[in-house]
């Protein structure tokens, strides 16, 4: 394969994978916002649910980190 074109495609791909992190950002924001609106409606129940909040954030964030990982792999390992 031509080195120049391969290099170009690689960087374009890296840029595209960065979009995936935006999706994770939306997901995490959605979780935190919904938690907050629920917590404001019923503050007494909020304290018991922070663990669920963090679990949800962790799951949503993991997918963003996967896209980051793909970007890193493209950048450095391919």
């Amino acid at each position: 394969m031509e080195g120049e074109f391969a290099e170009m495609g690689k960087y374009i791909g890296v840029g595209l994978t960065a979009i995936g992190m935006g999706g994770a950002a939306i997901g995490v924001g959605n979780i935190a916002g919904n938690f907050l609106s629920g917590a404001l409606r019923n503050p007494s129940a909020a304290a018991g649910q922070t663990a669920m909040l963090f679990i949800g954030i962790a799951f949503a964030e993991a997918l963003g980190i996967f896209s980051f990982l793909v970007a890193l792999l493209l950048m450095f390992a391919v």
Binding site: G3, M75, F76, A77, V78
Partner: peptide, 15 residues
């Protein structure tokens, strides 16, 4: 980062 550097200085996590 070309192919030869990938195992060495590319991503140390994958070494």
């Amino acid at each position: 980062m070309d192919e030869t550097a990938a195992s060495g200085s590319g991503m140390p996590q994958l070494d």
